[in-house]
Nucleic acid binder design. Structure first.
Lengths: 206, 206
DNA sequence: GGGATATTAGCACGATCGTTCGTGCTTTTT
DNA sequence: AAAAAGCACGAACGATCGTGCTAATATCCC
């Protein structure tokens, strides 16, 4: 019986839109039902509780994010180029309003980062995953010898994520796309700062 | 007749706490009333509408932010040192949980950056003000000759704000303070990158 | 096709939302 | 001392919230 799964998908498609703009708290069963021409109980039945609906919304958003940002660069071999492509991919994702509220996770992380519970746990897990991805690409670029062997990859990841994420609210708040260009320049600059000398052996000692 | 103003302050003191953790949407008249032992209508009367309560909450938060971050460095003369003190002041403000939810503005900007209306307008105005402050200090440090005359101050401001703000959600999400240290290092590094040569004349041509 | 099953609709519940209204109490002004 | 103003209160409103029930309706298996 697949009709149920189909309905869940329909609901979640709308749910991620709403949550990316107004947050997970603004998700309401009744609103989703009227928006989609369903009954309240029909929407409710598909999830069993509001919290489960919110968790499912986070999972759905994770998939969309992964498709939009990670998939396009999956085939790229490790190295600095892959890292730069990731940054561009992320900026394009925020810029293209894949979620109408910009980056879904920027919105909901701010909403729940100070509220313990299953939702914050789920968001923390997603952040860790995203952070590990960036870190992995940085390690890749170090292993190819394009980044200095003694570079602090955690610090670089922190700055990269920071400048990318920060482009989002500024672009949304002012309906202005120049923050994306600043973020791009800032990311490239940070990578350049720890780039290895071109004639340094690939795996030099620290 | 000052009793009214006193009540408003009491309400707003609680309102900024709630909003910094759960957002401006989570402010509810009834909740504030029961939290403070007041009547719903009494709280309501002091503001006239929920939106006015939210706007007043933003104004109250702006004052608290200004007292915590800007006042301590007000007497400092322009220059790189003042800029570094600002970064430290900001990080201390987030770290000390002046607002229990970390940075009030990180939370509410994310909440309203994609929702046109008076609240977003008010938040945009606050952002502009904060941004202008950072830019002003950068210009000060350039005028003292400590920053290169051709440095892109807008880009530097973008990165500084990004690394500071980004420490906030990460520290909150993981109950971990090391992001503050990363942010500090990242900010200093960015300033160092455009520092002028020590023997360069104060106002060199571009 | 009929019977089992999975899925949606309809309706009601207690709670809470923002808001309005009328009333008393305090304090200031006259 | 009388009059006015400021302020908070309690009660009530229509709406919406999340969540249970029960009944109707699709869909699948035999």
């Amino acid at each position: 019986m697949l009709r149920g799964e189909e309905t869940r998908r329909t609901v979640l498609r709308r749910a991620v839109e709403i949550a990316s703009v107004e947050g997970l708290d603004a998700l309401s069963i009744g609103r989703l039902a009227t928006d989609l021409g369903l009954s309240k109980s029909g929407v409710f039945a598909g999830f069993g509780s509001k919290e489960e609906l919110q968790l499912a919304t986070i999972r759905a958003a994770r998939r969309i994010f992964s498709d939009a940002v990670l998939d396009p660069i999956a085939a790229e071999p490790p190295g600095l180029r892959k890292l730069r492509l990731l940054c561009e991919s992320w900026l394009a994702y925020s810029r293209a309003r894949i979620f109408p509220g910009g980056c879904f996770f920027y919105e909901v992380n701010a909403e729940y980062d100070a509220r313990p519970g299953p939702l914050r746990d789920a968001l923390a897990a997603n952040w860790r995953e995203w952070h590990a991805t960036v870190l992995g690409l940085l390690a890749g670029a170090r292993d190819t010898g394009e980044l200095r062997a003694d570079a602090d990859l955690e610090d670089i990841a922190f700055t990269l994520i920071a400048v990318l994420e920060n482009a989002n609210p500024q672009a949304l708040l002012f309906d202005d796309h120049t923050p994306y260009e600043r973020a791009h320049r800032a990311a490239l600059r940070r990578l350049r700062a720890d780039a290895a000398d071109p004639d340094t052996p690939a795996l030099r000692a620290d």
